[in-house]
Design a protein around this nucleic acid. Sequence first.
DNA 1: CCACAGGACGGCT
DNA 2: AGCCGTCCTGTG
Length: 289
Amino acid sequence: MQEQQYELNNIPSFNSKHIFECGQCFRWDEESDGSYTGIVRKNVINVKQVENRVKFSSYGADNLEKLVINYFDLARNYEEIKDKLSKIDEHLARSIEYGSGIRILNQDLWETIISFIISANNNIPRIKGIINRISKNYGEKIEWNGKEYYTFPTVEELSKASVEELRALGLGFRDVRVYETTRKILEKQVDLEELHKEKDTQKVRDILLTLDGVGPKVADCILLFSTLKRFDVFPIDVWVRRVMNELYIKNEDETKVSKKEIEKLAKEKYGNLEGIAQQYLFFWKRDTA
DNA sequence: CCACAGGACGGCT
DNA sequence: AGCCGTCCTGTG
């Protein structure tokens, strides 16, 4: 464990608020000075952005520079992606302008699976609370600057939790889903290493769908927000349905719009960048609601 | 007290 | 295949 600093100037397409508040992650909290502190693998990281300067400080096991480059997806050219998407239509161009500093994080696959199972029928403050309690009870403690942080438990660590214990942490009906999925991954009925090797997005998606609590929306979020990193998926939640209906479909009753119709439209308009297009649209619609 | 918000799942047609 | 009630908890 060591303390490290790393600084970057003029990174194109980087805005900490956009990154941490676009609904992709649950373990980052804003500090009183406007910086964000989060837990990534076995590290606590603070990100302080003042205009074009971003200061990263960390306490943990991993090399900070390598971790930052990987986690924040810094090798990818978001400027190029935004240019391409902005040309598609004015709606998308406007939402890209609004969330211009969004980057899609490379989050741990296991943690992302459990986090998005918990996200089902749930709101962000409660999801964050549940994940914090899970980490506090089954993860490892890290003390830094007089504060306590907890890593997200490993598969082995979380497999110690009973259904009753999970229920007591506030998971509600998701307790059995998390319990069963943990067991399936522990027993390698679903092998996360193998998932990373599979190139075909549909095949990976079909495997994810065999996990308890993983339906179409959760599967797409896992594919997009984890190290699986697929942009050819389009997670459809109530906000995405709302924005797609308002912009393109214009049905009086948005609940009547079928997922199939939205999926087809997204694929036609945004092609294999539909996943990142979804993020700009979602962040804009949610933030301006 | 009730209404509502938010996806997966199983039972039904 | 599509539709709908149920699952749980926090908020207004």
